[in-house]
């Protein structure tokens, strides 16, 4: 159950099998020792609630043997992982790097929803009533609490996020 090329190697096991034959995976790991740049252990979690101990044990094994665990829950997901490793081998990681978005709406939504309890309707409320972040920052708690949907708790959280200092004095 191994698929590999010069760069990546992946081993697959499912937890049902692993519980019956725990030695199997160790033998396989030994065989690929030191050969590949990235070595993946793809674990299929198919044992319901009984996953706790085997996963913990495999995590330790992988630490010692320099493997990275990926967990899939269905055969389809596991297959997709393999396909993706094959397909993405030379793909650049740009899509997961930090980047600057330009769409104001999504930026504003992303920013304001970091405040717990603020949902997309509230973002709309804040935007239509105040316009910009700077104006929200300048609004008083009373101004905020007059907006529909913004109750006391939300207003306090918004105020805390905007006004309380990042850090105290050491």
């Amino acid at each position: 159950m191994s698929h590999g090329n010069t760069q990546i190697s992946s081993l697959i096991t499912n937890l049902k099998y692993h519980r019956l034959h725990p030695e199997y995976i160790h033998q396989r790991i030994e065989k690929i020792q030191g050969k590949y740049n990235l070595r993946i252990l793809l674990v299929m979690c198919d044992v319901g609630d009984q996953h706790v101990d085997p996963i913990r044990e495999l995590t330790k094994t992988c630490l010692i043997n320099n493997l990275t665990i990926m967990v899939a829950w269905t055969a389809e997901e596991a297959a997709a992982y393999l396909q993706m490793y094959k397909a993405y081998e030379h793909k650049s990681p740009d899509s997961i790097k930090e980047r600057v978005e330009n769409d104001y709406s999504s930026l504003l939504r992303a920013a304001l929803t970091t405040i717990k309890g603020v949902n997309k309707t509230d973002v709309m409320t804040l935007r239509t009533n105040f316009g910009s972040m700077a104006s929200i920052a300048a609004a008083t708690a009373e101004d905020l609490s007059l907006c529909p949907g913004l109750g006391g708790v939300k207003v306090r959280r918004i105020k805390d996020a905007f006004e309380k200092p990042f850090r105290n004095s050491p």
Binding site: A111, T114, D160, P165, F166, R167, P170
Partner: peptide, 17 residues
């Protein structure tokens, strides 16, 4: 020598472009 952090504000800050 940093002190305690205001998590809410930090999260909001990190979301800014």
């Amino acid at each position: 020598e940093a002190g305690e952090i205001n998590a809410l504000a930090e999260d909001l800050l990190r979301s800014l472009p």
